[in-house]
Every structure is written in C-alpha cells, then in structure tokens.
Design a protein around this nucleic acid. Sequence first.
DNA 1: AATGAATGAGTGTTCATTCAT
DNA 2: AATGAATGAACACTCATTCAT
Lengths: 208, 208, 208, 208
Amino acid sequence: MVAHPRPAARREPRQQRSVAMVERIVAAGEAVLAERGYDGASTNHIAARAGISPGSLYQYFPNKAAILDQVLDRYADRLEARVSRAFVAALARSMSPESVRGVLVAMLDAFDENPRLLSALVEQLPRSEGGRRARFAHRIDELMATALAAGQPELSDASVEAVAWILVRAVEHVTIRYALDRPGFDRNLVLDELTALVVSYLDRHVPP
Amino acid sequence: MVAHPRPAARREPRQQRSVAMVERIVAAGEAVLAERGYDGASTNHIAARAGISPGSLYQYFPNKAAILDQVLDRYADRLEARVSRAFVAALARSMSPESVRGVLVAMLDAFDENPRLLSALVEQLPRSEGGRRARFAHRIDELMATALAAGQPELSDASVEAVAWILVRAVEHVTIRYALDRPGFDRNLVLDELTALVVSYLDRHVPP
Amino acid sequence: MVAHPRPAARREPRQQRSVAMVERIVAAGEAVLAERGYDGASTNHIAARAGISPGSLYQYFPNKAAILDQVLDRYADRLEARVSRAFVAALARSMSPESVRGVLVAMLDAFDENPRLLSALVEQLPRSEGGRRARFAHRIDELMATALAAGQPELSDASVEAVAWILVRAVEHVTIRYALDRPGFDRNLVLDELTALVVSYLDRHVPP
Amino acid sequence: MVAHPRPAARREPRQQRSVAMVERIVAAGEAVLAERGYDGASTNHIAARAGISPGSLYQYFPNKAAILDQVLDRYADRLEARVSRAFVAALARSMSPESVRGVLVAMLDAFDENPRLLSALVEQLPRSEGGRRARFAHRIDELMATALAAGQPELSDASVEAVAWILVRAVEHVTIRYALDRPGFDRNLVLDELTALVVSYLDRHVPP
DNA sequence: AATGAATGAGTGTTCATTCAT
DNA sequence: AATGAATGAACACTCATTCAT
C-alpha cells in the first residue's frame, strides 16, 4: 500500500520554505485575481505580485490553472466555513424563520466581502472538472440534509438529499446574484422573501 | 428574352448565400463553443470548422466576439422562447401546481437538449456587458411579475418585482444545475420538490 | 516588325470604355490617396470610391502599385506642366530676379493646392524604381539647362547640366518643404531669399 | 567566503546581455530596414535576422515602431554628429569657400556611407510625428543660424532663421539626392557648384 | 466584362512555460 | 532553489489578389 503518492522524503527539509512560498503565491494569485479578473491574471503578474520570478512558480505549481484553482478553492473553503458556522449556530435553535434568516444574512455578508473574487469563483467553478465542482458546497449540502433529516423525519432518504440539494442551490444562487448584480430591491425585502421561500417550503413537509 | 442584364432573381441567391454563410459560421461557432469552451473558440478554429478561410469570417462579422455573441444570443433566444411559450400556456390555466410543474418540465427539457452550449452560456453571460446580461431572462422576469401581479393582487409593486426576480433566479439555477451537474436524484422527484418550493411560496402570499 | 506591343485589335471596340474606367479608377485612387495617405489607400477603398468591384481593378491595372503610380505620375505631370509653363513664360523675359521670383511663386502656388497629394508624392517617389524617379522633374531640369546654356554661354556642357540639376533640386525641395512643413517664416521673406539664392548663384557665373 | 549570495558582479553581465540584445535587435532592424524598406521590415523578419524569437523583441521594445524609430534615430544622430562636427570645425575658420566646401564634403561622405539606410530615413522622416521630424536637422539649423548671426550682423532675427532654414534644406537635399540618385556629374563639380551656391548667397548679404 | 465572395499568407503582439545560469 | 531571459505557438485580424459565377 502506498501511503504517500508524493514521496515526502525529499521535500521534508524544505517544506517550511515551500509552504511559505505556496502561501505567498496563492496570496498573490488571489490579489491579482481580484484586481484583474481570471483572464487578466497572468503568471507574470502573479509572480511579480509574489515578488518572485515567473520560473519559480513552477517549483510549486505545475501550471497556471493549478495556482488559480488553489486560490479559488481556498476562497470557496472560507466561504463554506463561514456559512457552515452560521448554519450550525442557527440549527441549534431549530429551523425557525429567524434561524433561516440568520443563515441568509451570513451568506449575504460573506458574499459581499469580496465580490471580485466571488465573481471569479462563480465564473470559473462550472469550468472546473467535476470533482472540484462537487466539493464546493458539498458540506453545506450535507449540513442541510442533516438538518432536514432531523426536522422532517417523515422524509425519505432520497428526498432529503434532493430537497437539501435544491434548497442549497436556490438560496446560494439567489444570494450570490444579489451580491453580484445588485438589483435595486431592498436588502431586507430580499431577505424576507427568501426566508419565506425557504420556510414555506419546509413547512410544506411537516403536516400541520 | 433577357430583359435585364442583372435579372432581379440574381439578388436572391446572393442574399441566400450570405445568409447561408452566416448560418455556417454561427453553426461552426456553436460547435466549437460546445467542444472547446469560450476561450478555446478561436477564430481560426471556427473558420476551419466552417470550412472557410479565417479572412472570410470578417466578411460577415466584425470580430470574434460578434460571432460568439451571436451564437449565444441565438441559443438564449431559443431557450427563452421555449420557456416563455410554456409559461404563457401554463398561466392561462392559473398558477396551479400542474401549471408550475409544466413550466419546470419545459425548462428541464430545454436545458437538457444541449448541455455543452448551456454550459458555455452560463459561463459567459456574467462576463457580458450589462445589456446582454439584462436582456436574457428579463422577459421571463417580466412574465413572472405579470403573473404574480395578476394572481396576488395584495403584493406591492416593489414586492412583485423582487419576488419575481427571486423565483426566476432560484428556479432557473436549480433546473440548470440539474441539467448540467446531473445529480443522482430522480427527475420526477426534483420536479415535484421544485414545484412544491414554488407553490408553497406562492401560497404563502395568499391568505388561505 | 511589331508595330504595337499591345495588340489593339481586341481592345479597340472597348477602348472608350476602358479609358473611361481607367480614368475613374485613377480619379478614385487620387481621392483616396489624398484622404487616407499611401498606406491607407487600399484596393477595396479605391474600388468602392470608383463605384466598381475590387476584382474589376485588375482588368485595368496589374496590381495596386500600378494604380497609385499612375495617380502620382499624373499629379507629377500636372505639377510639372504648371511649373514648366511658368518657367517658359518667365524665361522669355530673361533671368531677372522678377522672372525667378515668378517661377518660385508658381511653384509655391502649385504645391499649395493639394498638400496631401504632394505629400504622398514626395514620400513615395524615392521608393519608386529609378525610371519613374528620373522622369519626374526631368523636363524642368532640361528647361533649366536650356535657360542656363542660353544665359551663361561660358558654362561647359557638363557644368550646365550639373548646375541645372543642383538648382532644380534645391529650389524644388525648399518650396516643397515650405508648402508641407509650413514653417513660421513669412512667405514673402522666403520668396525673397530663395530668389536671392538663385540670382546670386547665377550672377556668379557671369563675370560682371 | 561568500559574503553575498548574489555577488554584485552578477548584475554586470546581465546588464551587458540586455545591452547586447538591444544592440543585436537594432542591428537586425537596421539590416532589414536597409534590405526591405520600412514597410517590409516586419517584426518577424527582424527577429529572424537577430536570431531570436519574435517574443523576445518585446522584452526590449514595446512595439515595432519603437525598434525602427531607434534604428533611424541612431542613424540620424550619427549623421548629425558628423555634420555638426564638420560644421563646427569649419566655422572656426570663418565662412570661407574652403570651410563651406569642407562641410559639404563631410555631408557627402556621411551620406555615401549607407545609402540604403539614408533612403529609409528620408522616406520615413516625413511620416514621423512632428517631434521626431523637428529634432533631426534642427541642431544643424541652429548651428547655421548661429554662424549666420555671427557672420552677417545686419540680418534681422527673422531673416537669420529663414535663411538658415533655406540653406540647410537646400544643401541637405542636394547632397542627399546626389548620394542616392548618383547622377553622372563629377563629384568635385557638384561640390564646387554647391559651394558657389552657398558662398554667393552668403556674400549677397554682406555689403562689399 | 464585371462581380464580390473567398482566399490565405501575412501582420503585430501575448503569455504560459522552459532552461541555462 | 531561484532566476528571468528566451521561447514559440497561438492569437485576432488585414488586405492584395483570385476566380467561379
């Protein structure tokens, strides 16, 4: 059995350094991505921003896509962590309209923080290979499914997953588009309606 | 007897040729777009696929973007027409669950037809200038708002617009992701749940 | 013995038409050249301006250069004719300062008429093959030489030619640059000084 | 002992390499310009002639024009330096016929050295933007004006400038055309006559 | 003779990637 | 390990010329 596909032996002594460089590159990639968009994020710009030479990038990443994938993965992870946290905190108090609204507020806040990066993420994610795409928001799907299973015991397993998937997709997209497209509607109105959308849907599953 | 050195009939085939050429280019653009994605769709590839020389593209389109815009516009128009048709047909019979489900089926069917192109469209739309972005799905927004205003007279104008925007965003994204990501859930299950999502939300606005 | 290198037989019946077309093309070429400069004068522009198709140009000219050469040749001929006329008229009254000044005025007037075309001519002439280059202003050289030979009998033949060549070159260039560069100097001042340049030089050859 | 991981000496060869590369490109540009003329001097040709890849040109120059401008600027500077030197040396000994002839010899010698490049220069100069055009020969204009002001105190300031401008234009053009067109006249004859042209003109301004 | 659509080699330029140092 | 100069295939686009009609 091969424990490590990537032999650690040779890397170990330099790992500290490597990790630091990878961080620097990813940070530079993020900055450039936010500033210039995906297509404008050239390897030369990233290297310059990281204060290293273009050639050095290739000591740490096999190609340009790997760098930006990492940037987006990390950003996605951060988003997911924030939303998960809010989700878990809200779930503790049942799935009341207030809890749902709380999660939605957390999502809008998270998305509002770095619209440029968010934009790059949603533009790029569908282009990525399936694995990467699946990974993102998967944990939220699971959290949602867990919450649903707990709150709506009469739902079948298959239904739970589908309902969770639908809800996450719907809410995620509406909040992201609100953050990115900035339609003229009042934020509170959107939050209220989105809460209503979720709550009325969930209520439908519990017989009165 | 040859009355006219240039018989009027001659303009016809010329025009037909031009139209045919535009069609050929757009078709080639569509194929290349589906195969290689937006960035991979170079003018040379499109020309080769159309069986013409690169220079010929520029007899019919001012630049590369115009070609791909046309491809995507046409595809978006086709989608929109299908969905609008279903929407209008369903609305005639009020906003019953059956009507809603009918529209959702139409959407899934439409999106299932050419997932590669759909993928290119949803990737590219957010990058397009506001006008193009606004145009697409705007009509659906309006149809939705009209239907809402008719069915839920107690909603304020601002609410109607926001509710329509939210519903269209949510339903469109969920159906598109279902068509593109092909999650394992049964199609009918998804249709049922999505119908429930919409109907329960709409019901919430009418006092029982 | 071959009387006509270009057999007239087949062309004759169409010659009227051909001549008219050549005229139209040359006129269009001149207009485009004046408007867009040498590099901007594309065959498509010329054809469009002439109201014919690009392909038709090649019925009358072997290539683009031939068209623009003809345009410039004709312009050069017109310039030359004007200057020659002034030259001949002035020479009749000896080579007095007044006569010299008269020729210079004629040159400035001629050059001022169409600076864009003049500009194209002086930019392009040096690029042309020797024959074309030599032809232009050659007649002026000869007129000058004749005038010199008449007025300065003590000059050797070789000297006459060289002196004429030098004088024509100098005067032509100074007047052309004055027309094209529009330096700040007063026109009359330039005319006076240029007259003085010529006259004092000519006087040097006649012992007082 | 290695005091500096990057010994200062290393920058030296790097810089030398850059300078060497610029030189190589400019030299290639000069060769291609002389061989194929301005329009025929494509970046690909220049790169090939320099033995480098097309992309490398853009490490040293922002675009094609910058390369050819540099080629022509350098050549113009060399010409101007030679003529200026001769001019200054001759002026020290007053404006005698011998001095004038000396400057003319220097000009002819300078122009004779690289007629192809001279040709490209005189073709391109009038197309360049005013600044570049003005720069070239401007210093000669000024030297001439200074010499005139010193030698002909009775000339007004306006006259001095105009006279200098006329003289420089005339002499420059005649010598350049002699170098490029190679008319049959004996070089000494042309030098003598051109000297006479200048001297007799200058004499006219000093009352005997 | 006239058309004008089609051509295709050519342009200037970019940028992810390599490799000699 | 790090450099950064060099690469070269690829890009979008042009235009003098050809040729089927």
